[in-house]
Design a protein around this nucleic acid. Sequence first.
DNA 1: CTATGTGCAAAGTGTTTGCAAATTT
DNA 2: AAATTTGCAAACACTTTGCACATAG
Lengths: 130, 130
Amino acid sequence: MLNDLHQRKRSRQREKILEVVKSTKIHPTADWVFHEVRKEMPNISLATVYRNLNQLVESKDISEVLSDGQLHFDANKDDHFHFICRSCNGIFDIEEKRVESPDFKLPRGYKVESVKMDFYGVCPNCQAKE
Amino acid sequence: MLNDLHQRKRSRQREKILEVVKSTKIHPTADWVFHEVRKEMPNISLATVYRNLNQLVESKDISEVLSDGQLHFDANKDDHFHFICRSCNGIFDIEEKRVESPDFKLPRGYKVESVKMDFYGVCPNCQAKE
DNA sequence: CTATGTGCAAAGTGTTTGCAAATTT
DNA sequence: AAATTTGCAAACACTTTGCACATAG
């Protein structure tokens, strides 16, 4: 495992992986990224994808979202929450400023450093189909 | 996999498992429950623990909490959120009514059915130690 | 008696790691 | 040249499944 004492060298692979994650809003899994990157780098291995996704999380270029017990990745660096559709399983970004009342006060004693909020329901697209 | 068409028969194992989950506030993993139940039922298998925890989730006697990429189980049936301490990794229940402003409005079109909110930070106990 | 539940071992899924060769600085 | 990164395969951690026997209703 890499830690902060190591230097980081660039690699074509990591740059491509970041590019791929940035290119989509679907909050892809490692496996999706792997297949996507493979189209242009047929020899890349899944291990490399995992290693680089982890590094990119560590360097805060991307973040992780847990859904379905799987890790999904997100290159959107603005503060936001997620809406998870129970019909299509899609993960949608909800900008923080579009959520009314996102200020919380917890019971005394708990020092809150961050809040993770996920909304579950049916997305506009799936509602239209129902 | 069991579905709703099946009858459910009682089993000593399932009852013990529920009792164990109810006995603690630590939001245990399947493995913790397994070892705990094993103290009184030395022959129980981990598979049985998993199967029954899943059934208990299905019957809404308990719920799942995802943390550290592992499933934790929670017998607290009141609406509540979780506070996850980055120091001791403990999961603490925060009653919904103790959270100010837990009413959200999302952008038009998203039909919200539930909200999952996790707070991250340092719990009172760990702050005292720092 | 029949259906569900159990224990065991094996399989599954998603992710990480050890290593020698390749690449980056 | 020295250190990091890669691809591969093997290992890992957690969870689920197939099956023959046991148990509940």
